[in-house]
Design a binder for these strands. Structure first.
Lengths: 353, 353
DNA sequence: GTTAGCACTCATAGAAGAGGAGTGCTAACA
DNA sequence: TGTTAGCACTCCTCTTCTATGAGTGCTAAC
């Protein structure tokens, strides 16, 4: 069966109506709503066809139709207008994005909050992957002769730290010399870009400085590897409970649980997109996370140095306002990307004024 | 009216039955359950008295009785046995508490998770108040000539950091010298114990070193003051949704929202107890947080150096198993306190082996 | 002081029925 | 051939009614 223009119009009308009301849509509604001058009977015939094509479904015999996953997919891929660009209410976001930030993590948390507030859905923000961002500086902070803390500052002034133990006692000056060695090799680099040969070189250099430092590099190296852990923040988790489709307590609980499970959230923001893609929409049963089978997820990735290094997602009911969400995310991510890239420069200029 | 022994027994029986079933308790049930050989009619008379005293209430005329806030309060204050000490299932906790930790925050998160798992309620863990814990070391990490990061390591290897900007360009060595000055004064101290005179002294000393450092101390001082912010972790937020009293979606949402609001959580863990108190139980309407009017909160504080510096709470329905929760918390906090106090020593000993 | 007996209350569940939204099908029409 | 009016039919939803039963309070007798 062919999906002609009229069918598409009807499908779109059904979906848009359903997005608003969350109620199954009947033929009469469409007949009145669409300016085609068609009777409800005609619409009924068309709807029957659309159902056969798997684009809409009937909850029960005498009910109207609701879009299926496949129907949403078609809508999202071809019918969404991408019209919903920045509006008045974007003020908060715009203000945020023009702000010079001090530390990226607090900014991103705030960004998530505003995004959730704006969309009324749940926002999931993934921090830049640590191992893909540039290290600004490393610093060993001595605590006592046998332990110190490795502090790594990455782009965006994101700070990671880890305790490191030594077998031989070290003096404060030792840690400073080691710090110098580390920075000489690693500052301005990404963890990913450090080869095994280089690592061996650093180790050798440190041991040349003092035999006491045996084993210290291994600990540092482990810390850096371990630091590939991604941070994710979830904002507005409870927003999603406002929608009637989650008024069932069991379903609501399942959702809340998912938002608290870090593993699941990580798999959600998994942004293994090709670097030319920038947005991914996952609808209902397309989701790999069982508990999100009734949800849709819109994920936008942000780039740095041509690579995807992080993502921002919106989780909502399947009948989310895709148009608006896509528009918002698109706008947000583009501006955020620029800001992220430019912030460092700005900082320095301003200090010099 | 006098609350004689028999009335107390009946009240206790009612509460215990209600804790199990979440259903109003009738006179016949008590008559059968209590080995007093009293008929249901007699129990009815007593129940009528208990109701008059405000200890139990009737949801509607022909229903059994449920405990009132006042009834729970009496139960908690006088009737709870404190019997529920460590059981087999405490293995996880015990294991955790014997573990030597590297950084306290991850341990406390884990502790919250296990506590939530164990009690089936929601656990709220408040980290030690930063300004009351001892500073192990401060370190200025230079980023570029005009900015650096102040890293503060406190007891438990808790790391806080904040970006600091300068008006005059600084060299790496400058930051190291400043670091030395800071540590000379502040290492081994709590923020709270630093007087204004001392602060002035430090400022003077820094400026003596270099006029470039004008204003830097102020930034550092602000950071330390700001650091009084308490961290709270909530674990098992969704556990509480399992209880029938929260099967109403609106109530469930309100609860979930509360758990996500940091302000509210902070006011929850507010541990302004006298230093000889160690546990506080807040029941139902006694709660100042509106959304927790149907919940009870058991908060245990932990001390360090004779002062309360943090707390661990359990939030559950009013009909929570107080006995078990109190027992668990009591056990947990005591052991945690010891561990927290001893960990530093252990660490050093082990390194030297 | 305790208890059996009894009338009474009221939440709850189920049955029955009305209403209505919406469908599919058929036959007629342009 | 596409469109439409008409109509029977389905089935959800809401309301009403009734039966059930758990539980009470009161009274009178033990």
């Amino acid at each position: 069966m062919e999906l002609n223009d009229r069918k598409i119009q009807i499908l779109q009308a059904i979906i848009m109506n359903y997005l608003e009301t969350a109620e199954p849509v009947g033929s009469r509604t469409i007949s009145r709503r669409l300016p085609l001058g068609l009777s409800s009977a005609t619409i009924r015939n068309e709807m029957s066809d659309l159902e056969e094509m798997g684009l809409i479904v009937q909850p029960h015999t005498s009910a109207g139709r609701i879009p299926s996953t496949k129907g949403y997919r078609l809508y999202v891929d071809h019918l969404v207008g991408l019209a919903g660009k920045p509006m008045e209410q974007f003020d908060a976001l715009r203000g945020l994005l023009q702000k010079k930030y001090v530390q990226l993590d607090s900014l991103m948390k705030e960004m998530g909050d505003i995004l959730a507030e704006l969309t009324k859905y749940t926002a999931v923000v993934a921090m830049p992957q640590f191992r893909k961002t540039t290290i600004k500086r490393l610093q060993l902070v001595p605590l006592d002769p046998y332990s110190m803390i490795l502090v790594v500052v990455a782009d965006g002034n994101i700070v990671r730290n880890n305790v490191i133990r030594t077998r031989h006692p070290l003096k404060v000056e030792d840690t400073y010399r080691m710090t110098d060695i580390l920075n000489a090799h690693l500052a301005g680099r990404t963890v990913d870009s450090v080869t095994q040969e280089e690592a061996a070189l650093i180790k050798k250099e440190m041991q040349a400085d003092s035999t006491m430092m045996e084993g210290v590099w291994d600990a540092i190296s482990n810390t850096l590897k371990y630091a590939e852990n991604i941070d994710v923040f979830t904002s507005g988790a409870t927003n999603i409970l406002n929608f009637p489709e989650f008024s069932d307590i069991a379903r609501a609980r399942a959702l809340m649980e998912v938002f608290h499970e870090k593993d699941k959230m990580l798999s959600l923001v998994d942004y293994d997109l090709k670097d030319d893609e920038s947005m991914k929409i996952t609808i209902g049963s397309e989701n790999t996370i069982e508990q999100l089978k009734d949800c849709s997820v819109v994920t936008a990735t942000y780039k740095y140095g041509g690579q995807n290094i992080g993502s921002i997602s919106v989780v909502g009911p399947m009948r989310m306002d895709y148009d608006r969400v896509i528009g918002t995310l698109d706008y947000l991510v583009k501006d955020f990307q620029n800001m992220f890239a430019n912030n460092e420069e700005k900082e320095q200029k301003e200090s010099q004024e």
